Computed example of a mutant assay.
Amino acid sequence: MMRLAIVEDEKNFADNILGYLQSFQKETGYQIETVWFQDGCDIAEEYKSDFDIILMDIQMRFMDGMTAARKIRETDSQVVIIFLTNMVSYAIRGYEVDAMDYLIKPVTYFSFSEKLKKALKTVEYRKSQYIAVPIEGGIQKVDLSSVYYVECRGHNLFYKQSKAEVESRGTMNKLEALLVQYGFYRNSKSFLVNLEYVESIQGNECTVHGERLPISRMKKKEFMQALLKYMGEEYDHRVHENVIMM
């Protein structure tokens, strides 16, 4: 189920949007849980990353939509923000907070439904790139597109990313079966690498985002084939030789 927030100080307009949402769900079959906030401060203060989409009015009494969006972006870079406004000049500033789009008031149902479909597709794509991994005391959401590789040390798995290393309980065999669909491949007993970040293969090592990782002899041929397949069949043999160093 998707979670959507409406941040709008005009009750009549908020009710209109809620009516559109009901019609949209009947037409498309989407299940959307909706929460209405009457001002930007109501959602931005003590914000938790628990919404997929936010429909945000720009002009509000206590905290305007741009300020609220900036505060939200401090903790949530993924939520889809669509601005609601009377003036295009306000809406085009949305790039400052990475807003996906805007709706000009009065909003027609056709315009609303088209923008919402686009937002939902974006959310679905982003969710497909995330997994929840168990950590001490709870779970951690991990963006797979930012993971360079996963290393197994003892009974723990370590997700190597640019900003932090996430430690989780789990087995490499189960993780391998889950992540193969996202472009990950097992190059040795202890490493599962994101093929997107493989820079080269040389001897019995591969370079992944600047780090040299071992490749087991039994895995080398399969690993190379997986990398070539990931790169695409349009790459001819000469390109392969340039990219993969033997």
Rank of each mutant, 00 (worst) to 15 (best):
E45T: 15
D52E: 08
K26R: 13
Q25R: 06
V7S: 05
Q22L: 10
V7D: 03
D15N: 10
S77P: 04
W36R: 09
K11H: 09
Q25T: 07
R70Q: 14
Q31P: 01
M63L: 12
E74N: 08
D76A: 07
A44F: 09
F37H: 11
D52I: 08
F62R: 15
A44I: 09
N12C: 10
E8C: 04
L55C: 08
D52G: 02
M56V: 02
F51V: 07
D15C: 07
V35H: 15
F13M: 14
Y47T: 02
D15L: 14
M56G: 01
S23A: 13
T28N: 05
D52K: 05
Q59T: 12
L21C: 00
Q25L: 02
R70K: 15
I53Q: 02
T34P: 03
R61S: 10
E8R: 02
T28Y: 01
D52H: 14
K11S: 08
V35P: 10
F37I: 11
A69H: 05
E33F: 12
K11I: 13
N16V: 14
L21G: 00
Y47D: 04
N16A: 15
W36V: 15
Q78A: 12
A44L: 08
E33G: 12
M63S: 04
A14K: 04
N12V: 14
D52Q: 06
K71N: 06
R70I: 10
D9W: 07
F13W: 07
K71I: 14
E33S: 14
N12P: 10
I32E: 04
K26F: 07
G40M: 08
D64S: 05
D50Q: 15
A14P: 05
Q59A: 13
D42T: 10
F13K: 08
Q31C: 07
D39R: 04
I53V: 13
A68P: 01
A69G: 01
I72T: 03
D50P: 05
D39A: 06
L21D: 02
Y20C: 03
N12K: 14
D64V: 03
M66Q: 01
I43Q: 00
V35K: 15
C41S: 13
M60P: 07
Q25D: 00
D42S: 13
I43V: 08
V35R: 15
M60Y: 06
N12F: 13
Y47C: 04
A69R: 04
D15P: 05
G29V: 10
L21F: 00
K48R: 12
Q78I: 12
F24C: 02
E74G: 03
E46Q: 15
R73Y: 06
D76I: 11
M63D: 04
D52T: 06
M66I: 09
E10C: 10
T28R: 05
M56I: 09
A14W: 07
A44H: 07
G19H: 00
D57K: 06
D42R: 11
W36G: 00
T28H: 01
Y30A: 12
D76S: 05
D64K: 09
G29Q: 07
E8L: 00
D76R: 06
K71V: 11
E10H: 14
E10S: 08
M60T: 11
G19E: 02
Y30I: 05
G65T: 03
Q38S: 11
G40F: 09
S23N: 13
A68F: 00
